[in-house]
Design a protein around this nucleic acid. Structure first.
Length: 774
DNA sequence: CAGTGAGCGAGCTTCCGCTTGACTT
């Protein structure tokens, strides 16, 4: 056995390091944390100084016993986990759980996975930093207290199985508040004036010049007056100003910026990006993908320089050191970059290739020269009034980093400025057309997954390893939903001055379309309002930043972690008790008005099966009537009229074959119910107006299709049904579906053959539980 | 697999951060 055992966090890292170290070293991985607070109960002993109850996680038992065995046989154990709070804690947990001997244990850290860095680290071992470990314990215990005391409050006051936490609850709050900003938004309009001028350039050729007026008119009258004045006016260039400008490349990728760019440029979801990056990392193509550092190693800088030089020449090189200024960044790793800068492309799936390409370009561009631009502004005066038109143009003098990469923005309607024709000052222009167009202020945009991550990072909330899981959690709890909104049609006014005449037009435009954005649900809003009312401290956007400061003091040895947690708990716990005792059950009820037909109250609330509208109240003698809200409706914004619509369904359509036909909207959309069967209504039919004859033809169509679905019925009790499915022929037996091998013609299938296939394929039902657990 | 909206009570749910596989449709 080896004399030395080195323990790192990730197996991929272990593999690389093993190559650098000689045969005297065995490198193993802990696969992250090996222990955690007990899963059952709160796992903290409040009676004894908040002593954490640590348990080896069930999926780590095997790793721990293997590490224990290897440690026993080694002369020296080197704990080489990351140099941040969590990494230090991992080292300590290993030390404690493996019962290592202090004399034969060394703590080392390295920032770069190169032979030099590792050898240097081995030459400079240190002891485990107990203060840093304490800071991690404080972090862990605080999160457990917050999560495990708040969640049960929600089970009692809102709904079972809900959850709350320092990170997720703030993430939901951001989305809920943005939604309200959007709902309360009132668009204001103003008139923007653009003109097209005819000019003659310095070579005497005709040229067109598009310019915008430096002033916006707040109303139609003023815009109209301006156009009236412009009739027959003369225009001339008063000044031409040319200024140099620079554009600099963005820093290399961190987890959060990679998620944002992959979303914008490739349309990846946050978890998709991480999945693909993980495979790139495991196959050694990129460095570690969970990082908040923008730093590049010297090796990366040198190889980037070589690549850029051979690709574009020396003058395209500009080596830069980027620094991280994100709150709470811990920089245990490098930025995300290709392992080998000379690999411009890689083998792999289409997704892997695209993501790698993005990472390669971003990294290379970060070490390239600034782009040099020339911005030209042409100022145009009018003989008629004091307002000035300006035409702006942009010319790239030197492309620099733009040769390979330009970061995208979330703002789509940025117009690229073009090159302007060469003109002279004082020359006169002819106005071809002047257009005053009504423009509206834009609603704030909803968050998407990646832009929510950016906001969280900005607030210092969450870590690179938790961004994707957090986004998944708040969707799994149904606090928010990813969805689209179609564009709305909006009319706007356009005044056009052409050939001395002003025309006044009303036009329509599509606006506000959104794709893959995060929308709060009713439950999300009710939970958020409840938590922000009773636990404002935890829901405060600065809460994490404040406790991080506290953790830093613990890490510096200035304060003791137990007294820090004690201070928090003594303040927090009574609020939990008080809320349990004194708050009402939260159903988010809103009273919309009265039913014009019955005069009874109309209200909406979260009911047993979700959001529901209700006519009347439970106290009245006559029972209330209920109708579920549609998926696109919110308790907060539904109107009385919309609510009344809901009660028009289910609707009786009349009889067919002696049985009643009913039309209603269910989970899968509108349907017709007849004689115990369901028939989906095509999108083209409106459930509120569909007639009996149409319903009958829908029923008959479906029956016809069903008939074609059955290929054969086999077996003594007709227990095998051979059917035509979406994915080709299959058969059913005791509620399970079975594949029919391609070699067999389904028409020739026999009962005996079916029996054989059932035995072959087994009756195992999918185990949904184990899948959901993690 | 589309309906449901009384109420009681047993037993369960839940956090954040480190890290990878095993699982299926």
């Amino acid at each position: 056995m080896s004399k030395n055992l080195v323990i790192v966090e990730s197996p991929a890292k272990a593999k690389t390091i093993e190559k650098f170290l000689g045969s005297d070293y065995q490198v193993m991985s802990s696969f992250g944390h090996i222990r955690d607070l007990a899963e059952k109960g709160i796992g903290i002993d409040f009676e004894h100084n908040y002593k954490p109850l640590y348990v080896v996680s069930s999926d780590k038992k095997k790793v721990v016993s293997e590490l224990k065995k290897a440690a026993k046989e080694a002369e020296t154990v080197w704990l080489a986990s990351d140099e941040d709070r969590e990494g230090e804690a991992i080292a300590w947990h290993l030390f404690d759980e493996l019962k290592l001997d202090k004399k034969k244990t060394r703590r080392i850290v390295f920032h770069e996975i190169t032979k030099d860095a590792i050898v240097k680290a081995i030459e400079n071992p240190r002891e485990i930093d107990d203060h840093l470990v304490d800071a991690q314990q404080a972090r862990r215990v605080l999160d457990r207290i917050v999560g495990f005391e708040l969640s049960p409050v929600l089970w009692k006051k809102v709904k079972p199985s809900l959850s709350a936490g320092r990170v997720q609850s703030v993430a939901v709050r951001l989305i809920v508040e943005r939604e309200r900003e959007i709902n309360n938004f009132v668009a204001e309009s103003s008139y923007r004036v653009n003109a097209v001028f005819q000019a003659v350039d310095v070579k005497g050729n005709p040229a067109e010049l598009k310019a915008e007026l430096q002033h916006r008119f707040s109303n139609k009258e003023d815009a109209m007056a301006f156009l009236e004045h412009s009739k027959g006016a003369s225009f001339s260039i008063s000044d031409i100003v040319t200024k140099p400008a620079k554009k600099s490349p963005a820093p290399p990728f961190t987890t959060s910026t990679l998620q944002q760019e992959a979303a914008r440029k490739l349309g990846f979801s946050v978890s998709q990006t991480m999945r693909v990056a993980q495979t790139l990392y495991e196959s050694g193509k990129i460095t570690y993908m969970r990082t908040d550092s923008v730093n590049l190693s010297d090796l990366a800088l040198n190889t980037s320089r070589a690549e850029i030089t051979s690709m574009a020449g020396e003058k395209y090189v500009k080596i830069r050191k980027f620094t991280t200024n994100t709150k709470g960044a811990q920089e245990a790793h490098e930025a995300i970059r290709p392992t080998y800068m000379n690999a411009h492309t890689i083998e792999g799936t289409a997704q892997e290739k695209k993501l790698y390409d993005l990472i390669w370009k971003r990294t290379i561009a970060s070490q390239m020269a600034d782009a040099e631009l020339e911005k030209t502004s042409v100022f145009i005066n009018c003989s008629c009034n004091q307002h000035q038109f300006v035409a702006t143009g942009e010319v790239i003098v030197f492309d620099g980093f733009l040769k390979v990469y330009l970061e995208s923005t979330d703002d789509e309607d940025e117009e690229a400025a073009d090159r302007l024709p060469a003109l002279k000052a004082n020359q006169s222009l002819k106005a071809d057309e002047i257009v005053a167009q009504q423009r509206f202020t834009q609603k704030p945009p909803r968050y998407g997954e990646a832009s929510l991550v950016r906001k969280l990072e900005e607030l210092g909330i969450g870590r690179p390893s938790t961004y994707a899981p957090t986004i998944t959690t708040i969707q799994n709890r149904s606090y928010v939903e990813k969805g689209d909104r179609p564009a709305e049609k909006r009319t706007f006014n356009m005044l056009v001055l052409k050939e001395g005449k002003i025309s006044d037009k009303i036009k329509t435009e599509n606006t506000g379309a959104e794709k893959s954005k995060l929308f709060p649900t009713d439950i999300g809003m009710v939970v958020n309002d409840f938590l922000t009312e009773y636990f404002p401290t935890i829901l405060n956007y600065n809460f994490t930043a404040q406790v991080e400061k506290e953790f830093d003091s613990i890490a510096d040895g200035k304060i003791n972690w137990v007294s820090s947690i004690d201070k928090f708990y003594k303040q927090f716990h009574p609020v939990v008790e008080d809320t349990l005792k004194n708050s009402e059950r939260q159903v988010g009820e809103r009273i919309l008005g009265t039913d014009p037909k019955s005069g009874r109250q109309i209200s909406v609330k979260i009911g047993r099966f979700g959001p529901v509208a209700q006519i009347g109240t439970a106290e009245e003698e006559e029972k209330p009537v209920f109708a579920s809200l549609r998926k696109d409706q919110l308790i907060e914004t539904i109107t009385l009229e919309d609510a009344l619509e809901l009660f028009k369904l289910p609707r009786q359509l009349g009889e067919f074959e002696g049985k009643e036909m009913t039309v209603a909207i269910g989970r899968f959309g509108p349907y017709i119910r007849h004689d115990g069967s369901f028939y989906s209504l095509p999108k083209t039919d409106d459930p509120l107006s569909v007639a009996a004859e149409r319903a009958i033809s829908i029923i008959e169509e479906k029956r016809e299709a069903e008939k074609n679905k059955v290929i054969a019925v086999l077996g003594e009790q007709n227990e095998y049904q051979v059917l035509n499915g979406r994915f080709g022929p299959y058969f059913t037996f005791e509620k399970n579906n079975y594949k029919i091998p391609k070699s067999i013609d389904p028409k020739t299938l026999t009962a005996d053959k079916c029996k054989e296939l059932v035995e072959q394929q087994g009756t195992a039902k999918p185990k949904k539980k184990g899948f959901r657990k993690k």
